[in-house]
Amino acid sequence: MDLNEVMAANLRRIRHGKKLTQEELAHRTGLSARHIGAIERAEMSATLTVLGQISEALGVEPAVLVTKSN
């Protein structure tokens, strides 16, 4: 699993755990829902800036999004 896939899985898991839609997360980050969806499907890499925006919107440290869970 590459880092994009790790982030995609973590992002989806955390977003679902917080009961947020992609649209709600997009609104909180200032990104488009299409952009959030592409990151969640590992079709697009998130820049460090975007990683920060997403982690802040979810209330988690950026490392949580890119750390492979066991």
Rank of each mutant, 00 (worst) to 15 (best):
residue 31 L to H: 02
residue 3 L to Y: 09
residue 15 R to S: 04
residue 50 V to Q: 12
residue 54 I to N: 04
residue 13 R to E: 14
residue 30 G to F: 00
residue 31 L to T: 09
residue 36 I to N: 07
residue 23 E to C: 05
residue 19 K to W: 04
residue 47 T to P: 02
residue 12 R to M: 10
residue 6 V to W: 06
residue 38 A to T: 11
residue 16 H to T: 13
residue 26 A to D: 15
residue 18 K to W: 00
residue 16 H to R: 14
residue 33 A to V: 08
residue 37 G to N: 15
residue 25 L to H: 02
residue 36 I to S: 03
residue 25 L to Y: 01
residue 5 E to L: 10
residue 36 I to V: 13
residue 25 L to W: 06
residue 17 G to Q: 12
residue 3 L to P: 00
residue 28 R to G: 02
residue 2 D to N: 11
residue 21 T to G: 15
residue 50 V to H: 04
residue 41 R to K: 15
residue 6 V to Y: 03
residue 8 A to S: 10
residue 39 I to Q: 02
residue 26 A to R: 03
residue 32 S to F: 07
residue 24 E to W: 00
residue 52 G to Q: 12
residue 10 N to A: 04
residue 19 K to G: 10
residue 42 A to H: 02
residue 45 S to N: 12
residue 45 S to C: 02
residue 38 A to I: 05
residue 45 S to P: 03
residue 20 L to C: 10
residue 3 L to W: 13
residue 23 E to G: 05
residue 29 T to W: 00
residue 46 A to V: 06
residue 45 S to H: 11
residue 49 T to P: 06
residue 6 V to G: 02
residue 19 K to S: 15
residue 8 A to Y: 03
residue 31 L to R: 07
residue 18 K to D: 05
residue 12 R to S: 02
residue 27 H to W: 07
residue 13 R to N: 13
residue 10 N to P: 11
residue 16 H to Q: 12
residue 7 M to N: 02
residue 2 D to G: 07
residue 7 M to C: 01
